[in-house]
């Protein structure tokens, strides 16, 4: 560490610096090429989770709008007796699915969950969500770069007798 590197420390530093800049540049390229595909990125989509309406949340998460499709099957109860735990699942027959997201329109923040579907994973998800009140539920499937949606109305009877 003392004698051999004596005359060249700056040269070495400069080389290292150049190398890491080159690496960073390469690493950034894929993101630069596909800025709209926020959901496909690894980062947690904090901004999308802060949107109040489902339209805004979809826009922030995906940067585009969805078209309704009968190839997206959204399964949810007609009536949920407990809005705190509503079982919801989505399956689709679409090809090249890259993500599936759930939006609860009447919740304080519409986006509930967003799932990344890598190659080889079946495009079907089941989970349990909270619902503040009777609401429209939207499921979005991103397939081959396009968005497809299914909606369903879920009646929530918090503290009720199942009526």
């Amino acid at each position: 560490m003392t004698t051999t590197t004596g005359p060249h420390p700056t040269r070495r530093l400069i080389l290292q610096g150049a190398a890491s800049v080159a690496l960073l540049g390469l690493g950034n390229l894929p993101f630069g090429a596909a800025p709209a595909r926020a959901a496909a990125n690894d980062k947690y989509p904090e901004e999308a989770f802060r949107q109040k309406s489902e339209a805004d949340a979809i826009k922030v998460l995906y940067g585009k709008t969805a078209e309704p499709s009968d190839k997206v099957k959204l399964d949810a109860p007609e009536i949920a007796e407990n809005g705190g735990v509503v079982p919801i699942s989505v399956t689709t027959t679409l090809d090249k699915v890259t993500s599936i997201s759930f939006f609860v329109a009447e919740n304080p923040f519409a986006l509930a969950a967003s799932y990344k579907i890598p190659d080889g994973t079946i495009p079907a998800v089941a989970n349990r969500l909270k619902m503040a009140r009777t609401t429209k539920l939207v499921a979005i499937v991103e397939a081959d770069g396009k968005l497809y949606s299914a909606t369903k109305e879920v009646k929530v009877t918090v503290g009720g007798c199942g009526g």
Binding site: P45, F49, G84, K116, G120, R128
Partner: peptide
């Protein structure tokens, strides 16, 4: 094989 991003609306 599967990545979930969750908000507060997950039970």
């Amino acid at each position: 094989v599967f990545v979930a991003n969750w908000g507060t609306a997950v039970s």
